[in-house]
Computed example of a mutant assay.
Amino acid sequence: MTKALISVTGLDSTGIIARVATKLSEMNINILDITQTILGGYFTMMMVVDLDGAHLRFEEIDRELQPVRDELKMTIHMQRMDIFDAMHRI
């Protein structure tokens, strides 16, 4: 299974989870785990997703998230889970 970690941060507003989840669903990306919180008016969310169903390369998926970044005025960062895991084992 090819996993990625997606983080979403920015000012809180209605519909952030729905918008990000909808875009991932459109690309056939499954959300495996999700956590979110609001800290002092700032929304933060981390998602572990399964990329195996997507018919796009990692870079293309990241590019497809750009309109969502722009629309929500949020920072959305995606990184490969294997690299994330390796960084935290050192």
Rank of each mutant, 00 (worst) to 15 (best):
Q79A: 14
I83K: 14
T9W: 01
D70F: 08
M78N: 13
A86D: 09
S13E: 14
R19N: 10
I29Y: 04
I90C: 00
M87D: 14
A18Q: 11
I31P: 03
L24H: 04
K73L: 05
L51G: 01
R89K: 15
N28F: 08
L72G: 12
L65R: 10
G40D: 04
D52L: 01
E26W: 00
T44E: 12
I17G: 05
V8P: 00
L51F: 07
T9G: 00
T37L: 13
M45A: 09
F84A: 13
A21L: 04
A54K: 01
T14P: 11
Y42L: 09
T2S: 12
I29M: 07
P67Y: 07
E26T: 02
V49R: 05
E59D: 08
R57C: 04
D62P: 05
D12A: 03
L39E: 11
R69E: 13
R19S: 12
M45N: 03
P67S: 09
G10F: 01
M45Y: 03
R80M: 10
I76E: 02
L32N: 15
D82R: 03
M87K: 14
Y42A: 10
Q79S: 15
L24Q: 07
H88T: 14
L56A: 12
R57N: 11
G53I: 09
T35M: 04
D70Y: 12
S13V: 07
L65S: 10
T44C: 13
